[in-house]
Design a protein around this nucleic acid. Structure first.
Lengths: 131, 131
DNA sequence: CCATAAGTTGACGTTCGCGTAAGGTGATTG
DNA sequence: CAATCACCTTACGCGAACGTCAACTTATGG
């Protein structure tokens, strides 16, 4: 259980990223692997954070924005973070995410509708389509 | 009703973008305003497309991906597009969007949960917080 | 013992999505 | 007539997010 430390190679395989990416994230202080000599060893915490980073990216958040989000997840560390301020930032971010989700839902609806039209056109041309 | 043509300045005001952005989108073939001399006049179609472009961006789609999505909305034009192929592309994109939405929903849940924890901590410190 | 693999640190290159001059044109307006 | 808009093109610049060498250091095993 103490041995959740993984090398950079293992991380790359697990998350399908390049070493360069992980080093870059470390430089940007998104990850903080421990060192064994000069080698990086990624902790369970780094793994959790990387998951969030990759997810955040898929939503179009910048690395800097993600960095702020990650700060919220460090509350467990209970450092005398400027917790209140972080909380406010997170509220804004949460609102933005909800808004984004609603828009996305709307966009999905739009696209589905368009595709129904397209399907009819294709069918009228005798083209078989999936779904 | 024939006069839905708008200048670049009007477009910028309406959508809160810079002229540079609109010219850039034209160069990337996302928009295709007509010309009056050297001046651009944007059509109703351009407006519709710009809405979609801006929305797409908020989801983290690249301009190139958006370009592909826009192709689907040209079905009305009923050019002998490679409609079937476009349809497939759109299906993939739609799946991606649904997936993205689901992940986003999950992420929102996570963040809400974290914020509940944070709220308790803050309250135990006697800090009043919103919501 | 030496090769191969897996890791390291620079440092420069690339793509995307525009920003930002710099300079030119044409239509109004005081 | 001069000036001021509002628009144009050309072109270089920039930050973000890595890719891609190059050159070097361990660690391992045949």
């Amino acid at each position: 259980m103490t041995d959740t430390l993984t090398t950079i190679g293992q991380m790359c395989a697990e998350f399908d990223v390049t070493p360069r990416t992980l080093r870059f994230y470390e430089a940007k202080e998104l990850l903080s692997p421990v060192r064994e000599g000069s080698k990086r060893l990624f902790t369970r915490r780094d793994r959790a954070r990387l998951k969030l980073i990759l997810r955040g990216k898929r939503f179009g958040f910048s690395l800097e924005e993600i960095r702020q989000l990650l700060a919220l997840y460090d509350i467990g560390d209970c450092q005398r973070t400027q917790l209140a301020k972080t909380y406010e930032v997170a509220q804004d971010r949460l609102e933005a995410m909800r808004l984004q989700r609603d828009e996305l839902t709307a966009a999905i609806g739009d696209l589905e509708q368009q595709m129904d039209v397209a399907k009819d056109i294709l069918k009228s041309r005798g083209v078989k389509v999936a779904a």
